[in-house]
Amino acid sequence: MRILVVGAGATGGAFGTLLQEAGRDVTYLVRPRKQEVLSRDGLRFVSPTGDRTHAVKTITGPDASGAFDLILVTVKATAFDGVVGEIGAFAGPGTSIIPILNGMAHVERLEHLYPGQVLGGLARIVATLDGDVVRQQTTLTSLTVGGLNGNPVPGEVAQALDVPTIAFSVVDAIVGALWEKWAFIAAAGIVNCLFRAPVGRILDAGGEPRILEAIHETEAVAAAAGHPVSDAGHAQAVGLLTEPGSAFTSSLYRDLSAGLPSEAEHILGDLARRARDLNVPTPLLDLTLIQIRASPQP
């Protein structure tokens, strides 16, 4: 299959490299500056398994490439609006589109634009972009895909993504899995952004009851939306966010602390809007949003 990876950041660069190393036909849709860097230097990927640089194929907009068989949307929510309108130039009637972002608004928007062609995608990887170098901190590399609205995952898509270096799986309840991850990421964002500290320091300051309240709030929204968090998912959230001495911080908090564009509205703002529609009280979520929105933005 011809695979288009939208974005060559931490997630796109990591998964794109692993797919390319497995012999898949991968092209990146990037901005002109990024194309210049990649054309000159290649894409460098540093992971626990090695440090390598590959020559890659790139495009910056509609050209003679035609439709791709599979499109992986790997940009952050802050860049999603800028690329969603460009995807159509590369999507034919048989193209499958898998967005790999946090939250749900992007899935619904793509499904509206490309009904029946969008699949749910859930990635687990710890990677960052260091300049133009993609660095993966741990060996965790998984990708879970599932159909939406009863549509199956095409066999050729599953075959293309099932490579030895990625723990790949197809599930039926992908929407529930996406909501479960969203509930955790939102709870972590509330905890770190509201108290402006890593988990261990918040616990030392007596914050455990508030951490548990944040988890309860986000999981209550998920449950009211018809996607209750599993017992295992709840236990994992509590374990990660109440571990004594933990240096854990959410990516949302790290972006805000660094003065970078953040996914606050996509992760927290959208969840708060849904909570209001569902009549679910979320006082800690609301306070966190006020603090973020009142702070100077990049």
Rank of each mutant, 00 (worst) to 15 (best):
D69E: 12
L70T: 03
L70Q: 08
L70H: 03
L70F: 08
I71M: 14
L72N: 04
L72C: 01
L72Y: 05
L72A: 03
V73A: 10
V73W: 04
T74G: 03
T74C: 15
T74N: 03
T74V: 11
V75Q: 06
V75T: 10
V75E: 06
V75C: 08
V75A: 08
K76V: 06
K76D: 07
K76L: 11
A77W: 06
T78R: 09
A79F: 00
A79L: 06
A79G: 12
F80S: 01
F80T: 00
D81L: 11
D81R: 10
G82W: 07
G82T: 00
G82R: 09
V83N: 06
V83E: 10
V84T: 14
V84N: 07
V84Q: 13
G85C: 12
G85Y: 04
E86I: 11
E86R: 15
E86V: 11
E86L: 15
I87R: 06
I87N: 05
I87K: 03
G88S: 09
G88T: 13
G88Y: 09
A89H: 15
A89N: 11
A89G: 15
F90R: 02
A91C: 14
A91K: 11
A91T: 10
G92F: 12
G94N: 14
G94P: 15
G94T: 13
G94K: 12
G94S: 13
G94M: 05
T95L: 08
T95C: 13
S96L: 07
I98H: 07
I98M: 09
I98R: 01
I98G: 06
P99K: 04
P99A: 04
I100Q: 04
I100F: 13
I100W: 08
N102D: 03
N102C: 07
N102M: 06
N102A: 07
G103E: 05
G103S: 07
G103P: 05
A105F: 10
A105G: 00
A105V: 11
H106R: 02
H106N: 10
H106K: 02
H106M: 00
V107N: 02
V107T: 11
R109S: 09
R109M: 05
R109K: 12
R109G: 02
L110Y: 00
L110I: 08
L110D: 02
E111Q: 14
E111A: 14
E111R: 12
E111G: 09
H112R: 14
H112A: 14
H112W: 00
H112Y: 02
L113K: 13
L113M: 14
L113G: 08
L113T: 14
L113Y: 02
L113N: 08
